[in-house]
Design a protein around this nucleic acid. Sequence first.
RNA 1: GGGCCGUUAGCUCAAUUGGCAGAGCAGGGGACUCUUAAUCCCAAGGUUGAAGGUUCGAUUCCUUCACGGCCCA
Length: 487
Amino acid sequence: MSEEPSELLAQRRAKLDRLRADGIDPFPHAFPGVVASARVAAEHEELPAGEETDDHYRVAGRLAARRGQGKMAFLDLVDRSGRIQLQARADVLGPERMERLLSLDLGDLIGVDGVAIRSRRGEISLRVDDFTVLAKSLRPPPDKHHGLADVETRYRQRELDLIANDEARDLFVLRAKVVAAVRRQLDADGFVEVETPVLQPLYGGALARPFVTHHNELDRDLYLRIATELYLKRLIVGGLERVYELGKDFRNEGVSPKHNPEFTMVEWYEAYADYADAAARLERLVAGVAEAIGYDGELDFSPPWRRVTLRDAILDATGVDILASRDRDVLAAAIDAAQPALGLSTDGRTWPQLVDDVFSKAVEPTLVQPTLVIDYPVELSPFAKRHRSGEEGLVERFEAFAAGMEIANAFSELNDPDDQRARFEEQVRYAAAGDDEAQPFDELFLTALEHGMPPTGGLGMGIDRLVMIMSGRRSIREVVLFPAMRD
RNA sequence: GGGCCGUUAGCUCAAUUGGCAGAGCAGGGGACUCUUAAUCCCAAGGUUGAAGGUUCGAUUCCUUCACGGCCCA
């Protein structure tokens, strides 16, 4: 951003110098007593056009537009709550301060003392009695009317997006409300919020490739966590009974409209519960979030959500019965025969990968309304407990989908340490066969399980995707303030 | 990794078959006491993403690269 138009910059610099020459601090330290500009309108809904009041307000924000240059002018001030029109009158301010106010640049931050009026054309405004320069802007802001449209600039310089586009401000306020609503409900349900290591000697709890970093003093590599699962379950072993963590996970994979290498996840674990309890809690939680933010879109989050087994979902969509094809080659042949139109390449894919492929391609995009897909094959689920039905090779697990996207993943948590050891050993075999997303063997976690973990229901939910769904955005980059970009 | 599309003034966008690179807003000068994409007059603003190539002449055609978007794997 160094090659700016020197003329535009020089003019703003000149105005900065002029302020200083006139003894005005262009960067004062504070401006106490500011109220949200939206309050002015909210408190004068009944004020007739053309009327003035004696109601004084102090507001502050960024100068966004200016109309008129003579003895009366109108300016727009933008703060977080919205936009308010300022009326500047030479007979109120005097010629000198009038000239100074009108010579400010769009983008300058100012504070204003004024009284509420409604203009003759009917807009609630503040008549400026006094104003203060709060920070001089030395660069031109985006277009006052078109805003900032360039996607790349919006992501790389989010501050400009927030300055220019009020939808961007609204979106990230909405995101904060989503996060707060999640915390509020889990807190109310008796969960303890905890913080576990981001830097981990061994990563785990999901099937993904990690970022690796290095601790100089300890002279050892550490991994950025891909999930919080294993640490949280050790806290369940420790007797905290209901725990959750909401924070960033990191996965070393490609970026896409649905993937950012760092993303926000909430995971919770509840002792003496199972995956059905997790499902009920998820339904209530998401419905509560939707209510808290005033969601009024196409999706119906009210419980209970539709439930379908993974087997039936795939069977209905493709005619392939994955549980009748537990052999890798048999399943590959069934997929090739049943769905040439899918264009799936089955070469070199393992059985669990094939199941995942066919589901992702044929089923997932169709899951628009909130849906719980239940009862997964054990091969896909190294931390889920075997199904109580006794059905061979099934675990108690569900994934939640909405808007064609996975938003949550939950199990009846595996607490039999011997079974868990066998699952780790299976993952090691997958890794040896070339699966670089396989789960590494975690002896310390096994030791914790050997001390005894109560039956536990656990769930992880992607916060970014939840915000996408709640806001109707189709790209994760829209809901992450500073998404990952190439240099 | 592959395919397609895009990159022009600070911002939003034009530019005919390959023929002097334009407008609005913003910025500068001026007029204006109810405007709200204010209006009016004047002047200014460009390494057309980068590097090569074809051509008398390239924003336009070709090649490579960078960044972004969408789709696919």
